[in-house]
Structure formats: C-alpha cells, structure tokens
Design a binder for these strands. Sequence first.
DNA 1: GTCTATACTATGATAGAC
DNA 2: GTCTATCATAGTATAGAC
Lengths: 221, 221
Amino acid sequence: MSERSSLFAGRVRHTAAPGLPPGGVEGPRRRILEAALTLFARRGFHGTSVRDLADVLEQQPSALYKHFPSKEHVLAALVQHGYAMHHQTLLDGLLTVGASPVDQLHILVEVNARSHAQWPLLAIVVHEELHALPEALLGPVVALRDASAALLLRILQRGSAEGCFDVVDLPTTAAAIGAMGVRIPLWFHPGLGLDIDTMAHRQALLALRMVGATTSSKASR
Amino acid sequence: MSERSSLFAGRVRHTAAPGLPPGGVEGPRRRILEAALTLFARRGFHGTSVRDLADVLEQQPSALYKHFPSKEHVLAALVQHGYAMHHQTLLDGLLTVGASPVDQLHILVEVNARSHAQWPLLAIVVHEELHALPEALLGPVVALRDASAALLLRILQRGSAEGCFDVVDLPTTAAAIGAMGVRIPLWFHPGLGLDIDTMAHRQALLALRMVGATTSSKASR
DNA sequence: GTCTATACTATGATAGAC
DNA sequence: GTCTATCATAGTATAGAC
C-alpha cells in the first residue's frame, strides 16, 4: 500500500504514450500538445516553462509560437480536447442503453471510469490545471464540463422520481459518484492486476449501491 | 448547477478565515502560513511568488526568510500541519466508537468529511500542491497520509472478514470512499443550505451502502 | 525582525535571418 | 516553420544597515 500509492492524494504515475486521445488536431500542433500533456501532468502548468516544453520537443521556444499564441492557449487546447472527448464518450455510452435510469447510471459511470483510466494524463491536466486558465479561455471549456455534470444529475433525478433510486441527498450523491471517477488517475494503473473494464464495472456497481438500486440488467457481474 | 459549481473539477470558492486549524505554530510563522494557505489554494504553489506572499503580508520578501528557509518549506509546513491534524481527527473519532467495523467506517467517513468541509483551503493545498514538494521534504509528510489510508483499508478488511461488509473490490471501494472526502472542498460550501454535519452523516451512509452494510447503530438518520 | 538594495537566474514572448 | 539572438519582466534568495 506504499510505493506512494494514494487513496487521498498524489500525482501521475506512469508515462503511458501517447496520452492524448486520437481525433481533433494533427501534425505539429498535436506533437506540442502531447509533450505539454506529459509535462503539465507531472509538474503542473506553472511548474512547466516554455523552455521545458521546447527541450522535450528538441526545438527552440520560439518555434512553438508559430502554432500557439501563448502557453495558456496550449493548456486551453488540452482542456478543450479533454472535455470534448469525455462528453462525447458519455453521450455515446448513453445511446447504447434504453430509458431505464438504472441502466443509464450504470453505463454513465462505466464509460466515465474507462475514460479516466485510459487517458489518465489528460484527466489530471484537465482536473488539476484548469485553475491556471484565465477567464477568457475558461468559458467555452467549462460549458462542456457543466453539460456532463448535468447528465448525471438528470439521471439521478429521473431515477428518484420514478422510484427506482433511493437518493439520500442529490448534491452529496452526485458529488460522490463524480469524485470516484475523477480520482481514478491518481490510484489506478495497469500493474494493479485489475483491468480497466473490471474496475469500471465495479465503479458502476458502487454507484448503484449509493443510489439504493442494487439490481440492474447490466449489473450481473 | 452553474455559477461554476463542479462535480468534476474546480478550485476553491470562498475565502473563509482563518483557514488554518488552530494548534502547532503561533506568531509570525502562523501569519505567514495563513497567507500562504490562501494564495496556494487559489493560484497554486508555482502560481504564487514570494513577492505575492510578501504583498499580502505587507512586508518585504526578505522578511519571510527569517521564518522559513525557502518557499518550499512554507508549503511543507502547511502539508505537514494538514496531514497531522487530519490523522489526529481520524484517531479521535475512532476512539469514540466500539469494535464494530460498521460503526468504525461510519465515524471514519464522518470525521473525514467534517475535516475536509471545515478546512477546505488546507485540504486543497494538501491534495493539489503536494506534487510541488521536492523529495527531501516529501517523505515525513507522506508517512502520515499512508497511515490514514491504512486505517480505512484495515476497517474494510476487518468488516469483510467478519461478514458485516460485502466489499466488491478493496482498492476500488477504498478509493471511492476516499475520493468522496477529498473532493468536498471543490463543491461543498455553507451557502448550499446543507450543513457540515448533515453532509458528513450522509457521506457515511453512502460509504456504508458501498460496502453493502445498510444498517448501523449510528446510521439511523 | 524588518527594511533597502541587489545579485543572479528563469521566464514568456518577439524580431528578423534563412 | 525553424533557427539565433534578445527584450523586458518576474523569480528566489542574500547582504548588510538599522
């Protein structure tokens, strides 16, 4: 339980390449984003200088400014990429199930967990470096995050209204379910002998337990 | 659900004074720690300069170096203070209950939640800025954190062995329970119309649900 | 124990040649 | 689109007077 594992705090563990999900940008912009992703995840946005980034890329700092107008724009692109991918993942998951809140919560938690486990560097940067974005770059990005949160809240509300959930307290429960996913990059890694799909499935079971809905057509191990 | 609330990410919200729990240091060192706490929580360790800190204190940067040998030592003192207070809180809580794993899990989650809700600035700095500490200052501090994590794990293991818990998966469950507490400073605030004790009690209920132990002598609302 | 003054380095970003 | 060279500022930390 040591080697600096952590249920309560920590930072990123392994430097899984590529780190950045496919899609969106390509070419030199992508190369820069991948390098920045690793550095920001390990040392933080303010802990990473433009020179550090240029060193990893084996380029001069000035070369980066042909692709991004500032260091902050690099972070903004990463966060945007992360939230967009994540939100799309949630929507894709929801499309695979029916109208049952139980099934919807199950799949939402499952794909959320898979997403965080599969792209831990991106999850870290998005969650822990967002505060470094200036207001101007924050707005568009936060809208996507709020949309994802709203999905969870709506499912919990519908499940309560329909009587299939027994939700103790909406904000506390939603926050607990969200927290479970967000923290994945800080403790989960392949070396645990627990594969991503199993872990994701078990998080879904935990979420269903939290809302008092132990039975699910999808929950049968 | 907007105004930048956040189930999935965020930063600190309100600047509740004093922010730093009582005990330990006093005098000028304490004044410095309190100012640093607010700044580190809001802008991060690397996002805060010694000049920023001196400005808040209405002193010259050089004055700080009579009390701390470096900026990193200020962070180390904060993290140490935070982990020590937190661990003591957990132990104090456990002393108030008997040998039942159900009661022990209940009280552990409850006092953990209260601690995070009451000292959100400190929790933020401890959890999100720990990575900025150099190895030399990290060791002693991390030992306390691991001891706290071990308490939770042992309770879960005992409860499983005694048959009062049905734990789906030890690391996943422990991480989920820990995550729930760690994220409190990012969404909970007094303005929600949910007081600390109620929220803490409900987190304890959620934890008991996660381990399949819905009944508890302390859990009766 | 605080001040003024300053050393020295690192930082984000730009200019202009190729 | 990358390079060399450089600017202006901000960074951590120290020296020495009071």
